[in-house]
């Protein structure tokens, strides 16, 4: 039991560190693809939380269903993001978000 508690705590801390790293990456970089890498890192941590939740409460089947659905949605978002990125690259010739200054106020 004690060992189990330790395992959960470790996983929780690792997950939070990954989320913080991902969010820091999203805030601090100016390259669009690097921002998306940050999103992906944080989403992997969230997926791990779902798996951990299924492990803790003993309903691994349900958590499997949740994880697969979450991954599918993540891929769809990735596709949309890539599409927008390609069009921005065609317009500006690079992927720096500091170009995006047309909407202000």
């Amino acid at each position: 039991m004690d060992q189990n508690m330790n395992f959960q705590t470790v996983m929780l801390i690792v997950g939070f560190l990954m989320i913080i790293a991902g969010c820091y990456c999203m805030i601090r970089t100016y390259h669009i693809l690097k921002i998306f890498i940050g999103v992906e890192i944080a989403m992997k941590a969230v997926t791990m939380f779902l798996v951990l939740a299924g492990y803790v409460n003993g309903r691994a089947g349900l958590s499997q269903a949740y994880v697969i659905t979450a991954i599918v949605l993540e891929v769809v978002v990735a596709v949309v993001f890539a599409g927008v990125t390609i069009h921005l690259y065609k317009k500006y010739g690079n992927m720096d978000i500091r170009n995006l200054t047309q909407l202000k106020g």
């Binding site: 944080a42 939380f49 978002v77 995006l100």
Partner: peptide
Amino acid sequence: LEGSVKYLVISEFATIFILTALAFIFMQ
């Protein structure tokens, strides 16, 4: 494209927050 990219990135924060919360509630 600029408006869409801003909405997308900020929405991703929302997705991360909501899914983490769901994982913790599911855990309990």
